[in-house]
Each structure stands twice: as C-alpha cells, then as structure tokens.
Design a protein around this nucleic acid. Structure first.
Lengths: 207, 207
DNA sequence: GCTCAAACCGACCGGACAGTCGGTAGGTGA
DNA sequence: TCACCTACCGACTGTCCGGTCGGTTTGAGC
C-alpha cells in the first residue's frame, strides 16, 4: 500500500465510493425494489462481482449509503443546534442549510420514509435511529429551547418537530418548489407558517 | 341471473368484494411488493385462479381498490366543501370526518404517497388524479374561500392545502396519535397550528 | 521479474413469484 | 335431466434477479 501513510483514497475506497454514488442516484430516482444490482454496477462501471466484493448484499449497500449520508447531515445540522440566537433564527439556519443542499442529497432525506417498510428488524432500526438523530431530534432540541424560553407556546416538542419537518418536505415538492422560487421564499413560507400560522391576522380570541 | 332486477350482490360481486377487503388489509400492513398475490387469495378464501378470474393483474386489483376508496372519500369530504360556515369550521369538519374514519380506511390515504412510485404511466396518473380530487383539491377549495373572504392571509392555496394535509398526516402518526389522545385534541392541534402557528403569542411585528 | 493478495470479472444458480391453463363444481333456464 | 355458463381450482411455467464462485488481472513489495 503506497498510501498507508496518507489519507488519499485507495483504489478500493475509490471504487466503493463510485458504487455508493451510483447507488444514490438510482435509489433517489426509483424505489428500492426497482433498482437492480446490475443497474448500480453498470452505472458505477463495475461488474456485479466487483460490487459484491465491496458490499455484502444489496441491503448492505443501501444501508451503508444512507448511514453515511445521515451522519453527514447530522453533523451539518448540528451546527444550527449549537448556534446561539433565537429559536426562529436557529431553525432558519438549519432549514437553509438543508434547502441549499444539492438536489440529490436533499432528496435522499425522503428515502428513509419511502423505503423504511422494505426492511425489517435490525437494519430498519439502525436507519430509523440514524434518521432521528440527523433530523427530528436536532429540530426537537431547538424547539425545546424555544418553548423553555417562551418563544414558542407550550406543547410536545417532538410532535412540533415532526410538524416542522413535514412543512419543509412540502416546500421541496415539485409544485411548491416552482411556485415559491428562491430559497429565501421557501424559508419565509415555512417559518411564517410554523410560527405565525396561515390566518389573515393575529387572532387574540380565547380558545 | 336471479338478481337481475335487484341490486343485491351476486355471488361474483361478493367474492370480488371479499378479495378487495383482504387486499386492503394486507396492502395497509405492507408495501406493494411485499404483498404476494397468494397471500391476498388465501386471506380472501379464494385460490389464485379464482382471484385472477376477477382481476386482470395484481396492479389492476390494487388500483381498483384504491379508486373505489378514493371515490368514497371524495364524496365524504365533499360534504365539508359544500357546507356553509367559516373556513376554519369547514376544515374542522373535513378533518374530523377523516380522523373518525376506521383505522384501515384512514391508513389507506398514506398508501398513495407510499406506493405511487411503484406504478408507471397511465395507472399512476389515474391514482394521482383520484387522490387529488379526493383530498388536496377539496381542501384547496375551502382554503381559497378562506383567502377570498379574508380569513386567511393571501398565498398559494394549493401549497397551503398540501401543508394542511401534511400536518394532518403528522398527527395520525404513531407517536403523535398517542400523545394527543382524543380526536378533539388532534383537531385542535392541527387547526391551531395551521391558523395561529406555534409562536407563544400573536406577533404583530412587521415582516 | 517473480510472488502473493486484493480487486475485479461474468457466466451461472436457485428461489421467489406473477400469471396461465386445462380442468371441475354449482347453479340456472329450458 | 340435459345443456350451458360462470365461478372457481391449483399445479405448472417463464422470468426476473439477488447472490455465488472459479477464474483473471493488477500492482505493490522484494
């Protein structure tokens, strides 16, 4: 190994990375069952045998790909959690970081919810846990602070964080993405709706 | 045909209905690919041959099942659209009608979004159109009225309606369902969040 | 330039599963 | 009771695809 003292990628690592990249593109475009191992291999310029030299199974490849990505996202969004400022500002930062991701990486987030029923037992749990650590839990942390500081009305932080995630997913949908235009418009829509609601003017009436 | 002057179900119709009912239960529990035709047949007390006597293909069975159900929902939610009253009241009625549906029928709504990528071309479009007619379009109609009457702030009614649907889907999730308890609590959560937002108090500040 | 291991190849295997087809059962009308 | 038609049966088939395995290539170290 000429590379044993550096962290330049070895040939093996480069091939594995090529396979993962090819898999990402295909899995984003179609669901788990419709992506064939042969397609991934061809897209990655490897044969099936070569692919299986690096990954134990199709499921292993999928899970590796997702866990890598979710760990990156966890680190990325962790910055917003660690940031100082109002709850709204920190949520804005996190959401902006998300919206400015390359299309493919942003779309990957949908996959967990789309394909999660495909897996069973241990692998499924690993995926769910990684997803929760990357997104809902970090948003929940910010929202909990918001509630504690009186910026948000008291409520279940986890349900609120899932609601927030759901709203973000709406604005990255095909139609909403087109209607809203700029990233700033997306951001304003989500934050305004989440904080102030859709009513025409602040209603002060008792419930 | 002894039944030709009545609308009592014939033996054939009864069997077809049994198959559809069995398919519903199984498709709600697992995704399209994981439900085998043999399982549906067994659950419906028919053989595979019998099943294929009534439906041209697995896809045909799935689509028939969904179109039937979506048409029922379209009629059900149409009542809220036709109702008089404030935008909030009509949305509340529609949402309550939805939340009070039997579990299985409520869950069916998720399937469209879950399995839609499984199909291609014509069948896919039919499903999407039926779904849009049943849910987003009817909500959009109510929301458009709300904007026109000044009850809601100006905005894209379709994006708002999808946001509303997304919030409803959150509260029927496992965790939120448990935390919120009663149907009324679900309803209040969704409507308050959608209309007034999550902020602690009505903010009057200029944007 | 020889050696050995890791990387890679691709024809093949075997199980799963949607769909078929030749046949039987049951009921209806003449 | 006979003729006929629809409903239903279930063993079988063809295909698709994840995974395997005996082999070849590559290149690092000596």
């Amino acid at each position: 190994m000429s590379q044993h003292l550096t962290d330049l990628p070895t040939r093996s690592q480069a091939t594995a990375a090529r396979i993962v990249a090819a898999a990402r593109g295909l899995f984003v475009a179609s669901n788990y069952a419709d992506v064939k191992v042969d397609m991934i291999a061809r897209a990655a310029q490897v044969t099936k045998g070569g692919l299986y030299h690096h990954f134990a199974s199709k499921e292993d490849l999928y899970v590796s790909m997702m866990l890598d990505d979710l760990d990156n996202k966890r680190r990325l969004f962790g910055q917003a959690v660690a940031a100082t400022g109002s709850c709204r500002d920190r949520l804005a930062r996190l959401t902006r970081d998300f919206l400015e991701l390359p299309d493919e990486e942003r779309e990957l987030t949908r996959l967990v919810r789309r394909d999660i029923n495909t897996f069973s037992g241990a692998e499924r749990d690993r995926l769910v846990r990684a997803y929760q650590k990357a997104l809902p839990e970090q948003i929940e942390a910010i929202i909990s602070d918001g509630i504690r500081d009186g910026e948000l009305a008291p409520g279940d932080a986890r349900v609120l964080s899932w609601s927030f995630v759901a709203l973000v997913e709406v604005v990255i949908g095909r139609y909403a993405d087109r209607v809203l235009g700029s990233t700033d418009a997306h951001l304003d829509y989500v934050l305004d709706l989440f904080f102030k609601g859709a009513a025409a003017e602040p209603t002060g009436r008792k419930v």
